[in-house]
Structure formats: structure tokens, C-alpha cells
């Protein structure tokens, strides 16, 4: 790891101020991706601004069917939140299968979505739920937030403070794990929301998380795995790597979508 300077922020304002003193600095949340990336020398921030000790970024609140999760909330807390489980168990199940127990104790929802790894779970969950990402500057709907591989709508220095969504009527998530890394080789989140059915796919698209309009239309008229049987999944936009080629991933999209609908029932 290259040398770096560590700073602990006590508030969001403090974090912005600390970052302001350096060009090559990065915000650090749970660090479950960033520290590993730094160890491999794939990232070398001059300064790390630690957001983990900011009290206002932590915790979960559920009012009626409105769920709000602080950006600094670890996956384990979302996975075991009885309040969230009562209205949207799918997001608890998603959080409970990220990485392993130790990773879930450190990794946070804000860190995961700000990184927008193309094989991460939360981007599919948020896009599938039609969630809104709240930052220190504005609110961004999930459809506008995830813009490509490791790319988001976040501006320089902008901090995710929370994620909020209306619990859907039904939702389910199914993923095919990479057996070594536990990242999604393909993960599909389906949700029956007030605004219609949404289907979001992670781990498969070569441009990161995406929605599948064909699946959404089919499930809108018939909420059943059978509705997806005859819908084609185009392999041309799929990732291909040593783990799976594009055709295999395209097939996994359909298989995982069916399983997600079953999980949601």
C-alpha cells in the first residue's frame, strides 16, 4: 500500500472541510473495497477521510412504509433490522448475503453504492426499489444515480448521507454467487411498486447495473416466473470474463429473475 494520511471526520461538514485541503483524497466508509484496492495499489489516495464515526449517518428508520437507511449503516444492521423486515424483507435478505459476516459488520450501504461495483448487490436493490439517494447537496433517484462501471452521479466531494424508498407491495432478490468472492455473477432484484414492476440486474451488464424493460412488462401483466420464459435476454451487452461468458450470463439473468419472483411470492 502506498503512503496515505488518515483523517477522522466528526460530521458531514467536517468531512467536506477535511477533504477540501487535498486534491487526491477519498472518503472512507467501511473500507471493504477501498482498503483492499489500496493494498493492491490500484488506488493511492493521498488522504483518507473516515466517515465511519459520524453519528448522523448511521441507523435505520421506518415510518409507515417509508424506509430510510443512513449511508453509514453496516450491511449486518440492515440484514437484521426487524423494522425493515416487516415491510421489505427482500432488502434484508440482499444485505444478509453480501460478502461474509465480517465484511457485513464493516461494509456500509453508502460505501457500496458510491463505489457502484458492477457486481455489487445494493445497486440492484436500489434500482429495483426505485429508491432515492440523499446526499449532502441533493436527492438523486436511483435511475439517475448509477451511471456506469464504478460511475455514479456524485460530484467531486459529494457525500451520500442516506437511502430512502417506499416499501413495495412485493420484492425479491436472487443471485448466483461467484464461489470465491461472493460477488454476484448475476443478481436480479424484482419489485412490484406503486409505480409498476421494476427489474434490476447486477453482475451481468458490461455497463453496470441495469433495468430490464422486457421482464418488467411481462411481470406487470403476469406476476409469475412463467411470464419470463419466452422473453429473450440479449447477450450483446453482457460482461464476459474468466468466470462466465456473455451467453452464460444472459441465461443467468433469466434464471435469477425467475427465482427472484419466486422469492417475492
Amino acid at each position: 500500500m502506498y503512503a496515505t494520511s488518515y483523517h477522522r471526520a466528526s460530521s458531514v461538514e467536517d468531512a467536506v472541510r477535511l477533504r477540501g485541503t487535498s486534491d487526491e483524497s477519498k472518503y472512507l466508509s467501511g473500507g471493504m473495497t477501498l482498503i483492499s484496492t489500496m493494498k493492491q495499489r490500484l488506488a493511492s489516495p493521498s488522504d483518507l477521510i473516515d466517515l465511519r464515526h459520524i453519528p448522523g449517518l448511521k441507523g435505520v428508520s421506518v415510518e409507515g412504509r417509508r424506509v430510510t437507511i443512513g449511508a453509514g449503516t453496516p450491511h449486518a444492521e440492515v440484514a437484521t433490522s426487524q423494522a425493515i423486515r416487516a415491510v421489505c424483507p427482500a432488502i434484508c435478505n440482499l444485505a444478509g448475503h453480501i460478502g461474509d459476516p465480517h465484511v457485513r459488520h464493516m461494509g456500509t450501504i453508502g460505501g457500496s453504492i458510491a463505489n457502484n461495483d458492477p457486481a455489487a448487490d445494493y445497486p440492484a436493490g436500489l434500482l429495483g426499489l426505485g429508491a432515492t439517494v440523499v446526499t449532502d447537496r441533493r436527492s438523486i433517484v436511483a435511475d439517475d444515480f448509477f451511471t456506469g462501471l464504478f460511475e455514479t452521479a456524485l460530484e467531486e466531494g459529494e457525500i451520500v448521507t442516506a437511502v430512502t424508498f417506499e416499501a413495495p407491495e412485493k420484492a425479491g432478490y436472487a443471485k448466483f454467487n461467484n464461489p470465491a468472492s461472493r460477488f454476484a455473477m448475476t443478481g436480479v432484484f424484482v419489485a412490484k411498486t406503486a409505480g409498476g414492476v421494476r427489474v434490476a440486474v447486477t453482475g451481468a451488464g458490461s455497463d453496470g447495473v441495469f433495468r430490464h424493460p422486457g421482464f418488467e412488462q411481462a411481470l406487470q401483466s403476469n406476476w409469475s416466473p412463467d411470464a419470463l420464459v419466452s422473453i429473450a435476454v440479449d447477450a450483446s451487452g453482457m460482461m464476459a470474463d474468466m468466470h462466465a461468458d456473455a451467453d452464460y450470463r444472459a441465461n443467468l439473468v433469466k434464471v435469477m429473475a425467475k427465482r427472484a419472483v419466486l422469492a417475492a411470492a
Partner: peptide, 18 residues
């Protein structure tokens, strides 16, 4: 794996200063 503030964590993926 160690416990930090009562929870298991991987100490190879956390900086000492954190």
C-alpha cells in the same frame, strides 16, 4: 478475524488508525 467493539471483523482489511 478479531472482534472490534464486539463484532467480528477482518483485521487485514482495516487500517490500525481506523
Amino acid at each position: 478475524v478479531i472482534h472490534m467493539d464486539g463484532r467480528s471483523v477482518k483485521s487485514c482489511s482495516i487500517l490500525a488508525v481506523q
